[in-house]
Design a protein around this nucleic acid. Structure first.
Length: 507
RNA sequence: GCGGGAGUAGCUCAGUUGGCAGAGCGUCAGCCUUCCAAGCUGAAUGUCGCGGGUUCGAAUCCCGUCUCCCGCUCCA
């Protein structure tokens, strides 16, 4: 049985050292979490599994690690400056909060006109009106209240606060002089780093279409309401691919990537039937997207929530960032670019014509992936003796600790030194973390490692050192290996242990 | 931002009318222990989320604030 509440999982995470609240000793910082000793192993293993499958095992991929601090023009031409800032107003009566443009759209033409007149812009477009209202917030509030702007929730006239811009991008000062111009952004997605390096990568690798660039890294969004543990946070990590294809082949590649990514999640232990593919409705698409599939994982505690989005970004991004836009027959509607120094296009080898590739973007959340894996793996089960055990049924390649080496008794020097030697030998195999566990209570050690998902426990006992009272001398230099899921034990010769574990931990 | 709930040891939680800060589990040490949270002995662990106020005295009452959970709002 899975966790019944998110708190149950949060509690395990803190107790065992997977995930802690950010800035904990100062009362916490909303929307931030820190990965502890086991959490960092799990997260690293997940990222490594992604990189291996998406980069190393394909012949059409390159990697990248671009900087987090980003030139403001990157986010200007990407469209984020315009779309990642919402003007918000509150109704003091109903206590409801609205996006100003959404609210104005709901008004009757007469009311809207009255607001526009009061702002001195009788003929203006909605966008221009909103901009003016943000520039003069106090005047905007009195204009709205005088015009009788109503609350869509109850149809009654509201008492409106001045509109305030809510910027979802983190701005930061760059350089020693704090003036209007010397700021940059913390990237709101890793994708832009790939687009602005498109030409550099092409020049360095002589890739031909179709090919992709993969990147894992932090991104930052000033979410209004961080929620649900590490599901919605302000600082998070993405695993993103921008896959460049010829226009016209984009829809086919979009479908192919959907299948590739579903298969990958399945290999990580998220069953296909626990994921629903959402074909995002047109009106909900982000500004760059032609079509998007969201992979919605059925969290036991949250229901269906997104763990990955696979977007067809068309030629929007490269088209936005390229110079010479007018010669490239860009299909997406892009802002005129007067700053870029690079042509982000490729030449058709046959026709010699230059064109802007389309982009398919499988973008997965690392933190959401970790939460999904923990949710899926967390199992409470009743044992034959009536007791309950908690076991994390993580795939071995994701488990934070691969093998625990346990001396059966901790007050027998021969046993503990043998176990320590064995631990060091196994560690040298490069399987991942091997842990020397000497609680002196074998049952307790097993349960502890069940709870953190260690696939194998290797126990050194009296037989191992040839000091058994009843056993056969043939058991010298053998150990027991206990399987996490079945709790079954096998006697394995130490000389064969490396091969035994490598076979079962290989990924 | 709104409404509701909560915050006391690592975890789960008790704490009476305002009167010395508690339990279970876990952790650590010693003894014991020949395979599934065993036993015995001992120990450590607290800015009662934080700040202020009332009071002789505050975990407890009041004000402010932060964080978490649930429902709205929002969600590239």
């Amino acid at each position: 049985m899975p966790a019944e509440t998110l708190e149950e999982l949060v509690s395990l995470c803190k107790r065992r050292g997977f995930i802690f609240p950010g800035s904990d000793i100062y009362g916490g910082l909303q929307g931030t979490y820190d990965y502890g000793p086991l959490g960092v192993e799990l997260k690293n293993n997940l990222k490594a599994a992604w990189w291996k499958a998406m980069v190393y095992e394909r012949d059409d991929m390159e990697g990248l690690d671009s900087s987090i601090l980003t030139h403001r023009l990157v986010l200007h031409y990407s469209g984020h400056e315009a779309t990642f800032s919402d003007p918000l107003v509150d109704n003091r009566i109903s206590k409801k909060r609205y996006r100003l443009d959404h609210l104005l759209k709901e008004q009757t033409p007469a009311v809207l006109e009255a607001v526009a007149r009061a702002m001195g812009l009788p003929e203006a477009s909605l966008a221009a009106l909103v901009a003016q209202m943000l520039a003069e917030p106090e005047r905007a509030a009195s204009a709205m209240n005088a015009a009788g702007v109503v609350d869509p929730a109850d149809g009654a006239k509201g008492d409106w606060t001045p509109p305030r811009p809510f910027n979802m991008m983190f701005k930061t000062q760059i350089g020693p002089v704090a003036d209007e111009e010397s700021f940059g952004y913390l990237r709101p997605e890793t994708a832009q780093g790939i687009f602005i390096n498109f030409k550099n990568i092409l020049d360095a690798t002589s890739r031909r279409l179709p090919f992709g660039v993969a990147q894992i890294g932090k991104a930052f969004r000033n979410e209004i309401t961080p929620r649900n543990f590490i599901f919605r946070v302000r600082e998070f990590e993405q695993m993103e691919i921008e896959y460049f294809v010829k226009p016209g082949t984009d829809e086919e590649w979009h479908q192919r990537w959907l299948e590739i990514r579903l298969a990958w999640w399945e290999a990580q232990g998220i069953p296909r039937e626990q994921i629903r593919v959402l074909d995002v409705p047109k009106e909900d698409l982000s500004h760059y997207s032609k079509r998007t599939f969201d992979l919605m994982y059925n969290f036991p505690t949250l229901g269906f929530e997104e763990i990955e989005g696979i977007a067809n970004r068309s030629d929007y991004d490269l088209g936005s960032h390229t110079r010479g836009q007018s010669e490239l027959r860009i299909q997406a509607r892009v802002m005129e670019n007067r700053h870029s120094t690079a042509r982000l296009a490729v030449q058709d080898p046959e026709t010699k014509e230059w064109f802007v590739p389309f982009v398919i973007e499988p973008s997965a959340g690392v933190d959401r992936g970790v939460l999904a894996l923990l949710s899926q793996a967390y199992t409470k089960e009743r044992l034959p003796n009536g007791e309950e055990r908690v076991v994390l049924r993580l795939k071995p390649h994701l488990a934070p600790i691969k093998v625990a080496v346990i001396p059966l008794a901790k007050n027998r020097e021969e046993i503990t030194s043998y176990a320590r030697r064995l631990k060091a030998e196994l560690q040298a195999l490069g399987l991942g973390r091997v842990f020397y566990e000497d609680t002196g209570n074998i049952g307790k050690a097993y349960r502890r490692h069940d709870e953190v998902g260690t696939p194998f426990c290797v126990t050194v006992d009296y037989d191992t050192i040839g000091k058994s009272q009843s056993g056969s001398p043939a058991l010298k230099d053998t150990v027991t290996v206990r399987d996490r899921d079945t709790m079954q034990q096998e006697r394995v010769a130490v000389s064969e242990l490396a091969a035994y574990l490598q076979e079962r931990l290989r990924f």
